[in-house]
Computed example of a mutant assay.
Amino acid sequence: MNKWKIAGLAFVFFWFMGGGIGHFTHTEFFVNIMPPSFPMHYEAVYISGVFEILGALGLLLAATRKWAANGLILLTLCVTPANIHMWLNPQMYPDVPEWALSVRLVIQVLLIMCIWWSSREFPNAKSSLVDAR
């Protein structure tokens, strides 16, 4: 695995480990960004926090990396309604600039791409990046 993929994995690890911990230390923030029609706000925040932490830890082992990455991609897709809800209702989040609500959606797509790319080895692919070996 080259150093760029290792850096990508490290980024994804810290993103989800930090976010997962945040679900327990800043629970109200995560509850408040959920669409009102979604049931069981607190339960969903805690469960997704656990899966973020487990997914981040799963990235550390080659044997579980692809499964963990697939789970984190799925989890990222599952939180899309919260990001769309924020984007469609900026008045509910006066502390967040409106441009940041749009950027969140772009970042989410880039995050999914980073998770996928950094967690896969592509056999027989020639990389122009320097090998970390």
Rank of each mutant, 00 (worst) to 15 (best):
G55R: 12
R65P: 05
S119D: 05
R104A: 10
T80A: 15
L57I: 13
T80L: 15
A63S: 15
L105R: 11
M40K: 04
P39N: 01
I53Y: 06
M86N: 03
I84W: 12
W67C: 02
F30K: 03
W117T: 01
L54K: 08
H23W: 05
E28G: 02
F24D: 03
G20P: 00
W87E: 09
R120G: 00
I53Q: 03
M113K: 02
N32P: 08
G58D: 02
L75T: 04
A10F: 15
E43D: 05
S127K: 01
G18R: 04
E98C: 03
L110A: 09
A56W: 03
E28M: 10
T25N: 14
I115A: 03
T80H: 01
V31I: 14
W67H: 03
E121Y: 08
K5G: 01
L54T: 10
E43S: 08
M1W: 01
P90H: 03
Y93K: 09
I73M: 15
F13Y: 15
L59G: 10
H41Y: 05
P35K: 13
A100H: 08
I107S: 11
L88G: 03
H26P: 01
T25G: 11
L77T: 02
V45P: 10
I6M: 04
L9F: 00
S128L: 12
H85V: 01
M92C: 04
M1C: 01
G18P: 05
A62P: 10
W87N: 13
N83I: 12
A44T: 13
H23Q: 07
V103F: 15
M40E: 07
S37M: 11
C114M: 13
V96T: 15
V103Y: 14
M86I: 10
V50G: 03
Y93Q: 04
F122K: 13
I112L: 11
I84T: 09
S102V: 07
V50H: 04
F29D: 02
V103D: 11
L105H: 06
I84C: 02
A7P: 00
L110Y: 07
H41G: 12
I33Q: 05
T76N: 09
S127Q: 13
E98V: 15
